[in-house]
Design a protein around this nucleic acid. Structure first.
Lengths: 179, 179
DNA sequence: GTCTATATCAAGATAGAC
DNA sequence: GTCTATCTTGATATAGAC
């Protein structure tokens, strides 16, 4: 988890998370974060070298939370990939601003907590029988649907649940099974 | 097209398009646009009421260009939906910054040129036999793959073309045909 | 159609004292 | 670990003259 951070850095990170979730990516500035912490903005730089590093810590945390949630998909009955996609969609809707931060731009992977991204990727690939090409297609579908939903791109009268089901049916029909 | 704009507004729009394509969405500021035009930023407001209106004009233009390109998919042999998806992907890679402006945020549809969005949507839905739910799933897949590619989210060694083929195969297998 | 002058606001980051 | 003071840069937009 955040074991590489000092206790104070963890506090700052927790406040940053709250600020992000409540006010969105645009509201997450060093000044506003400092205000919530009751300190001045320059003080934050004693704990994180840059805003980008702080964001990377938030992103790493998000990946680890997603990964942990995905693991539950293998415990319940039914197709794990179906459960993972439901969990993925629910995560994005519960944490829309964190989701955007995690997925809606380029990633500077050098700043991430090592292994954090993999903790989300590995269960998803496993649920697709190790088929990485299919996993990438599924990632495309799932991210696309999610971000289009978050950005309100579908018409108000659209049956978005049905679109999810149709895509999911198409993709699960492509899983190779050895039996 | 741009028939509702004055000649001078069309010139400004053309310069804005060049600026966007060359420097990206972050580089498109009223100051920099004015600089390219050889005028001062406040002068632009005599031609467009706001930056958002100018961006909406760029977006409308993009939709119309996409729509016109999609129409060609029905003239060539083979599955129109396959051709449309190829055209969609190629458009995004040729105009990545315009693509982001068009698709990677919420849309204020009131500011668009009426009918412009539809000119891109209608051929795509038609190519999927009028199945709007499947069309939305396909939109999710196609937008997701595209934006993940533009944001460099796939590993360097990933076979992204193969992921596109896999998703496309899954989706085309879902088209209902009456024959 | 363009100008100057200006309002208003905000951002990330550093130096150096305590 | 926090502070003050500051640098540097940038943005959208309006008023009113020419």
């Amino acid at each position: 988890m955040d074991h590489h951070l000092t206790p104070r850095a963890r506090e700052i990170l927790g406040t940053a998370r709250m600020l992000l979730e409540e006010e969105g990516g645009e509201g997450l500035s060093m000044r506003r974060l400092a205000e919530r912490l009751g300190i001045r903005a320059p003080s934050i730089y004693k704990h994180f070298p840059s805003k980008e590093a702080l964001e990377a810590a938030l992103i790493s945390q998000g990946f680890e939370e997603q990964g942990a949630a995905f693991e539950a998909a293998f415990e319940s009955p039914g197709e794990p990939i179906v459960a993972i996609i439901e969990i993925y969609r629910a995560f994005a809707h519960r944490h829309p601003h964190l989701y955007r931060l995690m997925y809606d731009s380029s990633l500077n992977r050098e700043l991430l907590t090592p292994g954090s991204e993999e903790s989300a990727v590995i269960p998803a690939v496993r649920a697709l029988g190790g088929d990485r090409d299919l996993a990438r297609a599924a990632f495309g579908f799932v991210h696309g649907m999610t971000i289009l939903e978050l950005n309100d791109r579908f018409p108000a009268d659209a049956d978005v649940d049905e679109a999810w089901r149709r895509g999911l049916a198409a993709l699960t029909g492509s899983i190779q099974r050895d039996e």
